[in-house]
Design a protein around this nucleic acid. Structure first.
Lengths: 201, 201
DNA sequence: GTCACTTCGTGACATTCGTCACCCCTGAAA
DNA sequence: TTTCAGGGGTGACGAATGTCACGAAGTGAC
């Protein structure tokens, strides 16, 4: 029997996935989590073989939880299940010790297949996505540039960004200008969109 | 037996919801759709009692499909199932003839309950959300303002917007300025965020 | 110890943006 | 028929933004 922990913030989807997995004779759900910070305690208590983690969750995202799990419960294999096939997500997932990366776009039948493959020690990654992640190259933004861009992403003015990050306005302008040039776009709104799409936020 | 059509673009979620509903003795899935424009033909062929529609889908969103269904197959009751509790979505859903509006955040157990209530002719709407939608008031943007703001939302410059919509730059500036003032924000990035959040895009 | 890189800062400059006043035209409402 | 909102446009103005050159401090690599 494969013991699975399921972490997903949307109750309807979590319950539905649980129903789907319950149909498989060799899989049993031993724990559920609705937030990123519930994953580790639940896992320590239930000792699952596989952790199936969504990325977008309140309370710290699934990639952070994946890293924690990998360190503190290395016997538990992590599978990421997410809506967005962003190259940056895949890269971070692999760096966090995940053994697989599934998209919610994939057919439902693949979920159980992926769990069994992970259980056998195989890696489970959509080849198309893997190629995309490799061809994208790494995140070109410096940590500070990311921070500034992240605040800019919800429409803050330069003054507001400077205020929130305790920087001078000139510095914010320079960071944004650098990000805009690295991403090869024309303004910070475009830069923010692009960085978010790639999972570089 | 309640005959249900299920429309949801993410294969994994669609399959999982199907498994969830299959557990209910009185509900059967008679058709599935992965795109907005598949909903009507599938429904005409399968004659479901209830259509369970996601909003965000390729090929025309679920609200358009809801309107089509309501006109061409009025016997079929429409339930919207979506990630985002945006007031504008709820409003448009009700205007399209939907009888219910569910959030994927809700517990999985409510899905079957909602379907049975809809079947009995009741309306199914989260009260909190209904209040929010009412207190928000209507979309204050004129059609043209929405269009301009929608293009602005992905970071286009005024010149680019003018180009894409065949307008002069001055006109674009005026529309954006009007939108910014109506939404009571300081720039178009904020305006775009806010409009999108409310479902006014 | 030097080199490369990042971070933080200043000041100057041209461009873009947001606002405003004002114009015309159209179609629906009063 | 007048009135009024929406759409489209012009020109002008000040503020915000993006670019550039440059300086200074700190870090890690070699």
């Amino acid at each position: 029997m494969i013991r699975v922990l399921l972490a997903e913030d949307q109750g309807m989807v979590r319950g539905a996935l649980a129903a789907l997995l319950a149909l498989e004779g060799d899989i049993t759900i031993v724990a559920e989590a609705a937030r990123g910070d519930e994953v580790l305690p639940q896992a320590l208590a239930a000792r699952p073989d596989i952790a199936l983690l969504d990325i977008e969750m309140p309370g710290g995202d699934g990639l952070i939880a994946a890293g924690d799990l990998h360190r503190q419960l290395p016997a538990c294999k992590v599978l990421i299940l997410t809506t967005f096939g962003r190259p940056g997500y895949l890269r971070r997932a692999m760096e966090s010790g995940a053994v697989g990366f599934l998209l919610k776009d994939a057919p439902a039948t693949e979920l159980a297949v992926a769990i069994r493959r992970a259980m056998r020690g195989e890696r489970v990654v959509d080849p198309t996505l893997a190629v995309a992640a490799l061809s994208e190259g790494d995140n070109p933004l410096s940590p500070r540039e990311r921070e500034v861009l992240a605040v800019a992403a919800d429409g803050a003015s330069i003054a507001a960004i400077a205020d929130r990050l305790y920087l001078s306005e000139g510095t914010v302008r320079n960071h944004l200008s650098a990000a805009i040039q690295k991403l090869n776009v024309h303004n910070r709104a475009e830069a923010a969109r692009l960085a978010e799409q790639k999972g570089w936020l």
